[in-house]
Design a binder for these strands. Structure first.
Lengths: 295, 295
DNA sequence: TAAAAATACTCCATAGGTATTTTAT
DNA sequence: ATAAAATACCTATGGAGTATTTTTA
């Protein structure tokens, strides 16, 4: 069974005349007759009822006609389909993201991307970098938003910086410090910390650690927690203070005050990362996000 | 675009190895490599990312894979599909029928046919013979149930007799005749008639007419009507009496009495008719009905 | 260096062309 | 008598084979 046969069948079925059908196929009548005979033999049925004066579809031919039309149309569309896929205009994109990016412009960017590339199926997964990396390795993830120490980038990945910002101190509103407009480095040293485990985001952890080391001190880690939401809740409960990206202030929380720290507070960077050999859908996404940032 | 190319693509996509794919296709590796190159050129994309050590699907290839699978499966199924159509086990069947057959075994037969041939799409149209004939001529009808004078058959049609029965007289229950168990021919002559127009069913009309002519008389036609239901309603309203097939008694009507007529009352026959060159679905239907009658 | 894909060429199967015959209106 | 499908036979394109080279893990 070849599509050529179906094209020939379709021409004859529509013209109901071997001569005209052959002309339409840019061939002559005898080989067309033979081709149809061969198709009939292949399928084990007669497709036309013919006399020397007329050609009509047989019941089998009538059954084949819509199928042939459909298959030929599908074949026709294949080229456009695969080219769209090659250009990254269709396919799928599996995104990882850390919880904090969910609050900024990210949702709006996603919506814009969906509208511009409706044939790309998006799937989202909230995950920290340490969870994303194995997923990248096993090919289950195409790109991810992460928060990390400035300039860092996992090996084998490319990176697009979304935002770079100082970290601020989140502390319980009940502390006297909360009345000040800012906090000094010395005051920070005295506060017990709620912080994400080093295993989760080593570069960011080290950036915070660096702040203390620059002052010849070590942080007093009271509690470890992973989700930003959890950390803020623990701060609210008075367990300790926490370094958080300045943008986290935007989604406040009753009982928590955010204070800039004077001197040289640690900074962090939000980036989109993707494997160096990523598929074109990923490039489309990166380009789209880059354009959004520029705008 | 030929299915051969898709088969080759599918083999490589599944094996991810040109050598093994070639073996599966019962060919050697070099022409397969060339065939894939040609397919890629046709589609204007690269379908595989290959090195001398590994073959992987490109995004375009990933997009093509499900399409190729679907088209090849469809091509696979074509043979069975058209053979079923050729044997009359799939397709469509457009049936005409006169209202009276709707009351007998006809609905049960139809249900049985539907169950046995679920791939034949049935469509039904209630129509008298004079309406059915042009539909047959224009190819809009495949077979029809009609009531006609015994033995008659339109030219170019084949016929399967369903039932042959005498006609009985339907008359208003208020007439004194209605008290008798039967009516004599002489008594019939006096009654005004409600009858279908000759144009609708000439053979049947003539059969009724023959009853009167055999007695040297003519019927007194009070009113013409087409639908059997209408005729019975008019009888009930006292407009006149009517000759109806004996089977019509089964669906009675308040105010109407059915009486056998002594002597030689007109008879009528219910038949299934179909054009002599009918499609196999029609043969299936005829055979099915014939088997039902025999049972 | 070895496994696998890519090239270079050769061949033949078959799609298609030309000439003619058959058939049915 | 004629239009159109079928048959017979021929040609040549391109799909597949064999031998070899190139590539990279």
């Amino acid at each position: 069974m070849e599509l050529r046969s179906l094209r020939q069948f379709l021409a004859v079925a529509e013209e109901l005349h071997f001569g005209r059908a052959a002309a339409r196929l840019h061939m002559t009548q005898p080989p067309l007759t033979q081709a149809i005979q061969k198709l009939e033999a292949d399928l084990g049925v007669s497709l036309f009822e013919r006399s020397s004066r007329s050609v009509a579809l047989s019941p089998a031919g009538a059954a084949l006609l819509p199928q042939a039309e459909q298959m030929l149309a599908q074949a026709q569309g294949l080229s456009a389909l695969v080219q769209a896929a090659a250009k990254g205009e269709s396919g799928r994109l599996r995104l990882g993201f850390v919880s904090t990016v969910g609050y900024g412009d990210f949702p709006r960017w996603l919506r814009g991307f969906r509208e511009r590339y409706p044939d790309i199926a998006l799937s989202l997964r909230e995950a920290t970098l340490d969870v994303q990396l194995p997923d990248f390795a096993s090919g289950e993830l195409d790109a991810g938003f992460i928060i990390h120490a400035p300039g860092a980038c996992p090996p084998g990945f490319e990176r697009l910086s979304i935002a770079s910002e100082p970290m601020v101190l989140a502390l319980s509103s009940e502390l006297v410090l909360a009345a000040q407009s800012s906090v000094s480095a010395q005051q920070v040293l005295a506060l017990p910390l709620v912080i994400f485990p080093r295993a989760i985001a080593p570069s960011l952890f080290d950036a915070v650690l660096g702040f203390y080391q620059a002052l010849g001190e070590s942080p007093r880690i009271e509690q470890e927690a992973i989700q930003m939401q959890t950390i803020v809740n623990l701060v609210s409960a008075g367990i300790g203070a926490a370094w958080v990206p300045a943008s986290v202030q935007a989604f406040g929380r009753a009982g928590v005050s955010y204070k800039p720290v004077s001197g040289a507070p640690p900074t962090c960077e939000t980036s989109l990362i993707w494997p160096r050999d990523a598929a074109p859908t990923v490039r489309r996404f990166v380009d789209h996000i880059a354009a959004q940032i520029a705008a």
